[in-house]
């Protein structure tokens, strides 16, 4: 066969592969829309998103997902409060401060954390952390917002840490040396030079970590408590969107209002993660460090 024919064939083959996954994704999205939108025949969009009561199987049923949205949002926010400082600082330590050998041992361990199955973390939260929280804070129940946030933070730290570590590591050596040459201390160099230079990578890491937390299902299903209400305190149970979908989909009669409501909840969840990813993309482009002179 001619060299050129092979070239063309390879090109088309790769394009087909790329198109295949994109098409599959688009079809899934279309499916989500087609299965989710019919719920609007039964309730208005406002009642669905801002309705306060989720009683999908009662007669008459109520399909208000506001408590679920608030649950998802709070769980993600709180897990971020824990995981962002821990993740970013661990990354800074590994890339800048730790000696070569320490980094060599700690880094694989952090990455190992990322491979921990979520069901194991959920089980840990349920059996070990829940009774602990319940006794320590003397509250009625350990399956709550706080517990779920801790477990989710545990899951997103490795993502945040390893991606921001890459960003920090790729800051040009010359920048660092210049800073030292001007008489800056190590701390000043990290705070004033390294972090600003890698901020786009760090932000991307944070947002990817958060979008992992918001979409996580197993952990919140097991430890968040599952009460569809707007929590009044840190120790109230919540029912984030993924938990609700996972728990109810199996028994929702095919084609029923409940079925469509669950798909619509999935659509709302998708909108959330989509916005997260758009923001991540925007930030990584907007604050991208191009060359060494633009700091």
């Amino acid at each position: 066969m001619k060299q050129q024919t092979i070239e063309t064939l390879v090109r088309w083959a790769f394009m087909a592969v790329a198109l295949f996954s994109i098409t599959a994704l688009c079809l899934i999205m279309l499916f989500l829309v087609f299965e989710g939108v019919p719920i609007l025949k039964h309730v208005s969009l406002k009642e669905f998103v801002f309705g306060l009561y989720w009683y999908p199987t009662s007669d008459p049923a109520d399909f208000g997902i506001f408590p679920l949205v608030v649950g998802s949002f709070l769980v993600t926010l709180l897990s971020g409060v824990v995981s962002i400082p821990l993740g970013v600082m661990t990354a800074l330590y590994l890339a800048e401060i730790a000696s070569g050998r320490t980094a060599e041992i700690v880094k694989p361990m952090v990455e190992l954390m990322a491979s921990m199955p979520s069901v194991v973390i959920g089980f840990f939260g349920m059996v070990v952390v829940a009774p602990f929280i319940q006794k320590t804070f003397d509250i009625p129940v350990g399956l709550n917002l706080f517990n779920a946030s801790l477990m989710l933070a545990f899951m997103s730290i490795p993502t945040i840490c390893s991606i921001s570590e890459d960003a920090i590591f790729s800051v040009p050596q010359a920048l660092k040396e210049a800073s030292f040459a001007l008489g800056a201390t190590h701390l000043e160099t990290i705070v004033r030079v390294i972090v600003p230079a890698s901020i786009s990578g760090i932000c991307t890491a944070v947002i990817l970590g958060m979008s992992r937390a918001i979409g996580e299902t197993m952990v919140v299903l097991m430890v968040a408590g599952g009460a569809a209400m707007i929590p009044g305190s840190l120790f109230d149970p919540v029912r984030p969107m993924p938990a609700s979908i996972a728990a109810e989909m199996a028994e929702a009669p095919f084609g029923s209002e409940h079925y469509h409501a669950l798909f619509a909840t999935g659509l709302v969840l998708f909108a959330f993660t989509f916005v997260f990813n758009l923001v991540a993309d925007y930030i990584s482009h907007r604050f991208r460090q191009t060359g060494e002179a633009s700091l």
Binding site: Y55, S58, L143, L221, G225, G226, A227, D236, P237, A247
Partner: peptide, 13 residues
């Protein structure tokens, strides 16, 4: 008897 369980009840799967 078809009355609604309070929203603050924990649910487990």
């Amino acid at each position: 008897k078809k009355a609604r369980v309070i929203p603050s009840a924990l649910t487990v799967p």
